[in-house]
Simulated assay, not measured.
Amino acid sequence: MTRVPHPEEVALAAATIAPLDRAALARIVRTSLDEDLGSDPGRDVTTQSTIAPEARVAGVVAAREDCVLAGIDAIEETLAQVAERLSLPAPHVTREASDGDRLPAGGVVARLEGPGHVVLIAERTLLNLLSRASGVATHTRRWADALEGTGARVLDTRKTTPGLRELEKYAVRVGGGTNKRMGLFDCAMVKDNHIVAAGSVAAAIARIGERFPDVPVQVEVESPAQAREAIAAGARFLMLDNMSADAMAALAAEVRSGERGSGEGESGEGGPGGTGKVWLEATGGLTLANVRDVAATGVDFMSVGALTHSSPIVDLGLDLA
């Protein structure tokens, strides 16, 4: 049977800033251009009426507010796709910054030079994607900074903009956060309805292990009693949903005490039930104001849907020289 990776391995692997999937980016840009231009190749009735096809322009993409930059690859990808649609040369791009850089207002992201039709038709799409990704990265960085030194890490969720998950989860990584799971396929999360359907927590966990032994399994619990039931059933990754700080601290102390009592190490085979460390994730009611207090309870992770569903975009602009 394939060994199931435990959450620490998953989190540490995801903590590395894995590059943005280029095929996913190409799909996102293609869909965005279809929305803007009407079809492939589509048309921009203003630009193509007022500027000659052979006209060349130079411009600068710059931040208009302090931010953490993410999604810079969208600049070249968008320009290249527009150039291909119009059968024109792709503009030359000189990068002045990199993803992960903290840019001040006025900071230059890139300089562009090439056909005016390509630059102006691509402008809004590349800014939309760059602004969205940078907004997520900037917001995530605030959480990562707030957790600095606590030992806890901030996780994202599946509450992403439809069609933009790859870009937004990449931006979370750039901002210092961790991707818990990309979708329903790579991590099982047992919730109330799954327990009802399966008949019990133990039955749900067992069925997942039989059908998909290669994925980590998490159980959502709302009370210490539910957490104990899940641990007794073999769960080693718990999401503590809207649990009070006092309850989380007491549960974490109980769980860690059990681990020490069985001689369990960071990745050993002891712990409650004798099957390894129990990883605890807090969720619900988390804010930047209370995040360090929650981390002090002893949880390993905290998931924040707002990283992707509520991050404001960053104001970036493209100005012709």
Rank of each mutant, 00 (worst) to 15 (best):
P89I: 08
E259Q: 06
E9P: 00
A133S: 13
T2N: 10
P41N: 03
A18P: 00
A252N: 03
R256L: 03
A83S: 09
T125M: 02
L20R: 07
T150A: 01
D319M: 06
A206R: 15
E96P: 00
L120F: 12
S223L: 04
V304Q: 08
R153Q: 12
L120I: 06
A62Q: 13
A105Q: 09
R30M: 00
P7S: 02
I17Q: 13
E166Q: 14
L320D: 00
A144G: 07
A110S: 06
V172W: 06
T178M: 06
G107I: 04
G305Y: 08
A74E: 00
A122F: 09
L184M: 14
S310F: 10
G135D: 01
Y170F: 13
G263W: 03
S87C: 11
Q81E: 15
Q226C: 04
G59I: 01
G209W: 08
L69C: 10
M302G: 13
G234V: 09
R102F: 07
V29E: 04
L307I: 04
A110I: 06
R236F: 01
N290V: 02
V219A: 06
W279S: 06
A74P: 09
N128E: 03
R3A: 14
I28F: 10
H6N: 15
V57P: 00
T297R: 11
V221M: 05
V82L: 08
V255M: 02
V136P: 00
R236I: 10
A204N: 07
T138N: 06
V93L: 07
L238M: 05
I17L: 13
N290G: 04
S39R: 15
V4A: 11
A295H: 10
C187M: 15
E264L: 12
L164N: 02
V201F: 06
D36T: 13
W279I: 03
M189L: 15
I75N: 01
V278D: 08
G274H: 11
V119H: 05
A70S: 11
R95G: 00
E259A: 10
L25N: 11
